[in-house]
C-alpha cells in the first residue's frame, strides 16, 4: 500500500550572506495510514523545518533544495499558491505549539470551523454548524453547543489546543502534522491532548507526524520514531527498538541524559558540548565531536547514512546489542 506521506532525500536550504545553511539534509521517511511517526531531537535539529517543508510553510529564503514529497502517491513538493493552500486545508491538518497562532482571535471558533469545512467539503451551512458542534464534542469541549459561539480568548490553553485539533481534523485530512502540540501545556493537560490525538487518528486512520523534544511523549504515543540531529536523521525505527536498544550513540546519549525513576540519583549521563550551529557543521558525521565511539573514519565525507547500520542508524560504528544490554 502507498504510504500516506513519503519523503525522499529532502534537503532544505537557507541562503544567507555568509553562505548557504542546510537545516534539513537528505531526510527520508514514510508515514503509513493510521501510523504515528514521532520526530524527536533537541531544539534546532530541523524538526519543524522538515514539517514545514511538507506543508509548504517554509519562510523565504528557506526553500526545498532537492528531494521529493509524496502525499498518497501524489507529488506535492512543487505545489505553489492556491494548490498548496487547498492541499493544506483539505489533506493535511496542522497543530502547532501555540494554539493562539492557529486561531483567528476575532472570529468565533464555530465560524472558523464551519468556514474550513465549507471550503473543503461539499456540505450546507447548517450541516457545517452541526458538524462543528459535533467536532467540538468529539475533542471533549464541555457544553459544545454553547461554546461554539465563543472566541478563542475565552478558552484555557488546553481547551484552545482541543479547538485547534478539531479545526485540523474537520476537513478529514489524511495527514496531521503536530509540531510540539503539548510543549506549552501542563502534564495533566498534555496527557489529555495526547490521548485525544491518538484516539482520533486511530479511529479515522489519519497518519500523524508528531514533532516533539519529549522522549516520554514519543514512547507513549508513537509507533515509529525518527531521531534528528543537526538537520539529519540519526536513527529511524520502531519506537520500542530505538528507545530500548538504540544503535546510534546520539540516541543512546539522549536516553542516558533523561532522568529516570529507575536510575534514582545516579549521575546523569552527559553528552559533552552542544549541537553545532548550522554554519559550523563538522565534516563527516555531524555528531563526531561529541561522540564517545568516534573513530578516524567518522570525519570522512560523505558522512554515515541509515544504510550503514541495518537501515536504522546513520552511524559507522553503531552500538551493538551487547553494549546496551
Amino acid at each position: 500500500m502507498t504510504p500516506t506521506l513519503s519523503i525522499h532525500n529532502l534537503t532544505v536550504d537557507i541562503p544567507t550572506r555568509h553562505g548557504t545553511l542546510r537545516p534539513v539534509q537528505d531526510v527520508s521517511y514514510d508515514i503509513a495510514q493510521g501510523e504515528i511517526l514521532g520526530v524527536v531531537g533537541e531544539s534546532g535539529a530541523g524538526k519543524s523545518m522538515a514539517g514545514n517543508a511538507v506543508i509548504g510553510l517554509l519562510n523565504p529564503p528557506a526553500h526545498i533544495a532537492s528531494g521529493e514529497i509524496h502525499l498518497n502517491g501524489t507529488r506535492i513538493d512543487h505545489l505553489q499558491g492556491d494548490d498548496m493552500r487547498r492541499l493544506r486545508g483539505k489533506h493535511i491538518g496542522m497543530v502547532f505549539q501555540d494554539p493562539l497562532t492557529s486561531l483567528n482571535p476575532l472570529l468565533k471558533i464555530g465560524d472558523q470551523l464551519t468556514e474550513t469545512m465549507l471550503a473543503h467539503l461539499d456540505i450546507s451551512q447548517s450541516d457545517a454548524r452541526k458538524r462543528a458542534i459535533a467536532a467540538l464534542e468529539e475533542v471533549g469541549i464541555p457544553g459544545a453547543a454553547q461554546r461554539v459561539d465563543s472566541y478563542p480568548h475565552q478558552f484555557s490553553g488546553g481547551m484552545r489546543q482541543r479547538v485547534v485539533i478539531a479545526l485540523a481534523l474537520c476537513a478529514e485530512p489524511s495527514l496531521i502534522i503536530a509540531d510540539e502540540p503539548t510543549t506549552a501545556l501542563d502534564v495533566s493537560v498534555q496527557a489529555q491532548i495526547i490521548a485525544l490525538l491518538k484516539r482520533l487518528c486511530r479511529d479515522r486512520g489519519t497518519a500523524v507526524m508528531l514533532i516533539t523534544h519529549d522522549m516520554g511523549v514519543i514512547a507513549e504515543a508513537a509507533d515509529r520514531v525518527a531521531v534528528m540531529y543537526a538537520g539529519q536523521l540519526a536513527e529511524l525505527g520502531p519506537v520500542r527498538d530505538v528507545l530500548t536498544v538504540p544503535l546510534h550513540p546520539y540516541t543512546d546519549g539522549l536516553m542516558g541524559s533523561t532522568p529516570l525513576a529507575s536510575r534514582g540519583k545516579a549521575r546523569l549521563h552527559q553528552i559533552p558540548g552542544a549541537m553545532p550551529r548550522l554554519d559550523t557543521l563538522p565534516d563527516g558525521c555531524a555528531f563526531h565531536p561529541r561522540c564517545p565511539r568516534a573513530q578516524a573514519d567518522c570525519t570522512r565525507n560523505p558522512g554515515p547514512t541509515l544504510a550503514d547500520a541495518q537501515g536504522r542508524a546513520a552511524c559507522f560504528h553503531p552500538l551493538l546489542r551487547e553494549d546496551v544490554a
Binding site: 496527557a191 489529555q192 495526547i194 522522549m215 507513549e220 520500542r240 530500548t244
Partner: peptide, 15 residues
C-alpha cells in the same frame, strides 16, 4: 499522567 520513557503504547486514562 506524566509520560514515561518505557510507557510504550501505554493507554493513559486521561485526567
Amino acid at each position: 499522567a506524566a509520560p514515561q520513557l518505557d510507557g510504550f503504547g501505554r493507554e493513559v486514562i486521561p485526567p
